[in-house]
């Protein structure tokens, strides 16, 4: 949705927002200066990274490992700091991002 283009006639009455959780379309990953990089060989799949993510961006994959969704991850580093096994390291975004500038 091109939000800057919304005209007054397109607003719902009273500016009610009718699409639940529509903010999920908003990319907060651009704020990031560091990204979490995982070494899953050390991971015990405890889910501590998942529960402590302020941005709800960590999801469990089919194998039971947890992965940060970089569309949302702001790179706070809480997951790396809290991981009891040192699975996660925060890496400067420039280094990593050079090759894979996602989406």
């Amino acid at each position: 949705m091109g939000k800057e283009k919304i005209g007054w006639k397109e607003l719902e009455i009273g500016c009610v927002v009718t699409e639940p959780g529509s903010a999920a379309s908003y990319k907060t990953g651009e704020w990031r200066s560091e990204r979490p990089v995982r070494d899953n060989t050390k991971c015990i799949k405890c889910g501590i990274c998942y529960i402590y993510c302020p941005d709800a961006c960590i999801r469990e994959d089919e194998e039971g490992y947890f992965e940060a969704d970089l569309y949302y991850c702001k790179g706070c580093g809480v997951c790396a700091h809290e991981c009891p096994r040192g699975v996660i390291t925060m890496v400067e975004e420039e280094e990593e991002a050079k090759e894979e500038k996602e989406k």
Partner: peptide, 29 residues
């Protein structure tokens, strides 16, 4: 610490604009 027993539903959707590392956003979640 029993994260795996917690619902995966996020009724407070990502894409919110809380500061990086916001403890309040975590609490709301």
């Amino acid at each position: 610490f029993l994260p795996r027993f917690i619902t995966t539903d996020e009724n407070f959707a990502p894409g919110h604009r809380a500061c990086i590392g916001c403890g309040e956003a975590l609490a709301v979640r």
